[in-house]
Design a protein around this nucleic acid. Structure first.
Lengths: 136, 136
DNA sequence: GACAATTAGCTTGACACTCAAACTAAATCC
DNA sequence: GGATTTAGTTTGAGTGTCAAGCTAATTGTC
């Protein structure tokens, strides 16, 4: 039972990765770049350090990532109010639009994928996912 | 409802990505390298072309990936029986052991994550995942 | 207030992944 | 038997990643 769930998760993970890869590349972006917009879109503007931690990468990696996103005018570096060492990264209008469009695609995919599941199974799915996210 | 499932999936995806990254790096491997072992471990030996398609990468990318896995003695290139253009890639004993160990870690993670879910929810989870994988 | 330790972010160097395009060798198709 | 297709490799350019070292600013301690 758990074994079959395990394999189903692995399979789902791979298919979702592939979907994400294709969708993101169609917009001329890379996975880490879109991931950056997602984190900023969900959590709002944050400092480089916080953003790097949220994404699980080093600040060195983030520096060049944000450089490229600034070139594409998706994000903006803004001086921090009280700490002059810190820099806030925030979405531009264009970055916000990209994030929201991507978010809608995600939602549409989820709608399509769960369309065949009966409502009570969907409830259980949400309970399981919430519980699993909490266990991590 | 679907919106919450969507966000739960995104969150789960990120946490699983992070877990995978850490686990794989602990073994001194990269994500694509371990992914290669996974595909070979599940599907058995296959040709470069098939493997590239299964992984969603080009054969050019796969060539160097398999080069590195051969250096690490995880996989082996074997001439194809009937088609001299083709090359079969198969796991070595060491590669097989690595895959199986990784697979066990995956299973253990799934066990831990689903431990808090009641059995009927787990049944529904499996049904949903299976259905979703089929919809992709 | 002055100096040490810490923190935030950037830079550099080394390596891996990725693709597209060009190339070689083998198989297949008239 | 020659043209076309296919399998795999090589090359070049771009991106992501980390560790280590650097600068500037802040915090802590005396």
């Amino acid at each position: 039972m758990v074994g079959r769930i395990n394999h189903a998760i692995v399979e789902f993970f791979e298919k979702l990765s592939s979907w994400e890869h294709d969708v993101v590349r169609e917009k001329g972006m890379t996975l880490p770049q879109m991931h950056t917009l997602e984190v900023l879109g969900i959590h709002g503007a944050m400092r480089m350090k916080e953003l790097a931690e949220a994404m699980g990468i080093t600040t060195g990696t983030l520096t060049v990532l944000v450089d490229r996103l600034e070139d594409k005018e998706c994000v903006r570096r803004v001086p921090h109010d009280t700490d002059r060492r810190s820099i806030n990264v925030e979405l531009t209008e264009q970055g916000k639009a990209l994030f929201e469009e991507h978010d809608r695609l995600h939602l549409r995919l989820t709608e399509e994928l769960t369309a065949a599941c009966p409502p009570e199974d969907r409830e259980a799915l949400l309970r399981c996912l919430t519980s699993m996210n909490a266990q991590f």
